[in-house]
Every structure is written in C-alpha cells, then in structure tokens.
C-alpha cells in the first residue's frame, strides 16, 4: 500500500477507492512475482523431487501385492459419475458401437513373444475377476463401483511378455484436442491381482460413458490412470518415444504425475 493512501483526507469514498486500487495493484504485483517463481524450470525441477520421493517411498513401504479394499454391494455409490471423455465420437468408434463391438478386437503386442488379437466374445469367455472398489479421482471425489474383467497379468503371460519389457501402455480410442488418450503402468501394477481389463461395470456391460467396450482398472492409482476405450495394449522398455514421452495424456499435456499413487 502506498503512503499517500494512508494520509488521505477523511473523505471516505475516495480514500476507499484509492486504498482498494492500491490493494489490487499490490496484489497484482505479488501474483506476478509468484507466477514467475512457479514458471521457473529450476523451481519445477526441485519440486519434482517431491514426486520422485513419493513414488519411491510408496513402493518402499507398501506390500506390492496389497489389495485395495473391496466393498460390498451395499456400499456402492448410487450413481457413479462419468468423467473425462464420455464418447470418443469418431466414425470408426461409432461404427464399432453401432454393432455392439462385435467387430472390435483388442491387440496385445509390443515386446511379447506371441501377439494376441482378441474379440470381445473371447475376452468375455476368459477367466475373470470381479471387484467392488473405490475410484479416487485426482480432483478429490470418490465413487464406489463394481468392475469385472480379465486380469491383465493373464493376458501378458499368455502373450509371453519379454523380460526386457518394463511398462505396459494402453492406447485408447478417445482423444482430446487431437491428442490421443493413452496411459501406462509399470509391471508391479500390471501383474497386480486387481489390475483388470474390465468389460463390465455394476453387473452390466460397460456403457459408452464409462469406456465401452474395455477399460483398465488399476486400483491403487488415481482415476486418470483408469484408461477407457482401450484398443491396444503394448509392452515397452521405455516410455520416451511414445507421444509426449511422459507415459500418458495427462502427464504429457497437463503435467500430472506419472505415478498416480496419491
């Protein structure tokens, strides 16, 4: 606040406006300063140490096979909100949806000995796991729903995952602003018993808004890792050469943490 405003003659209206302007001006300067600090690459690289420490510490102190809590049907959210992209809206996807995904196939490839090409009927016939879990969105809301599908580990073993593979990438049918959605997880989560490619939600085939015909459930991470509209699963040794190189749409475009364990 400038000194002038403090020694203004007692004219309430004008002093109010001046003081207010001084306050707003001061606030503007403060914000500009803060924004400059926030935009500094050095500051951002220091802050990212926190993310690395969190990832390392969570892997260190948690049992890698610990199961996320499973709930009963009575605990389920009355309505499970649809979030993110609710329809890929491409001609190709619309055609698949129109035919109830009878012509849809899932490709499992990359660093595997025997690439797989599976129809929805084959996935439905495969051994499955059903779990009622809590979906925790990065924004802060939570919803409990029932998911049923094929354990990812089963498919990866069937395909003969290479011992050099380090990540599993999920390529999706939806995109935002021209950028395709994709996500990736490490092998600890890929082989976790609750990590499934879900074909069903709350006892019924997935609806388009929730990612029909196939959605990833990786129960120990936040919502943006639960890729919808999965078309292709790819085993890779590194994430660097894929899209923006950070392992996911939100990671590449919005700076979200790749490890979404919190």
């Amino acid at each position: 606040m400038s000194k002038d405003t403090l020694i203004m003659p007692p004219s309430p209206s004008s002093s109010f406006i001046t003081r207010r302007h001084a306050l707003v001006g001061g606030a503007g300067l403060l914000l500009a300063g803060c924004d400059q600090i926030n935009a500094s690459p050095a500051v951002q690289s220091v802050l990212s140490l926190g993310e690395k420490a969190t990832h390392g510490a969570q892997r260190l102190v948690t049992d890698r096979n610990a199961l996320a809590r499973e709930f009963s049907r009575a605990d389920m959210s009355p309505v499970f909100r649809q979030n993110g992209n609710r329809n890929p809206g491409t001609a190709e996807y619309d055609a698949l949806a129109a035919n109830n995904f009878a012509d849809w196939t899932l490709n499992v490839g990359g660093m595997v000995a025997q690439p797989l090409r599976l129809s929805l009927a084959q996935l439905m016939a495969a051994p499955r796991r059903t779990q009622i879990t809590r979906h925790d969105c990065v924004e802060g809301w939570s919803a409990i729903g029932e998911w049923s599908g094929v354990p990812l580990g089963l498919l990866l073993r069937r395909a003969g995952l290479s011992s050099n593979a380090k990540y599993v990438v999920f390529h999706c049918a939806d995109s935002t602003g021209g950028a395709p959605y994709y996500e990736s997880i490490d092998l600890i989560d890929a082989f976790h018993p609750q990590t499934i490619l879900a074909t069903h939600m709350n006892g019924a085939p997935l609806v388009v808004g929730h990612g029909a015909p196939l959605r990833l459930r990786v129960e120990r991470q936040l919502g943006y890792k639960q890729a919808k509209y999965v078309m292709r699963v790819e085993a890779v040794a590194s994430l660097d050469s894929l899209y923006g190189g950070k392992g996911g749409y939100w990671e590449d475009h919005r700076g979200y943490q790749w490890f979404a364990g919190i």
């Binding site: 969570q58 102190v61 948690t62 199961l67 925790d136 129960e219 991470q221 936040l222 919190i262």
Partner: peptide, 8 residues
C-alpha cells in the same frame, strides 16, 4: 488421499 497407501 493415496490409493496406494490405503491398499497397503
């Protein structure tokens, strides 16, 4: 707030 810690 961590689903990983909540599981463990």
């Amino acid at each position: 707030m961590s689903p990983t810690l909540n599981a463990a």
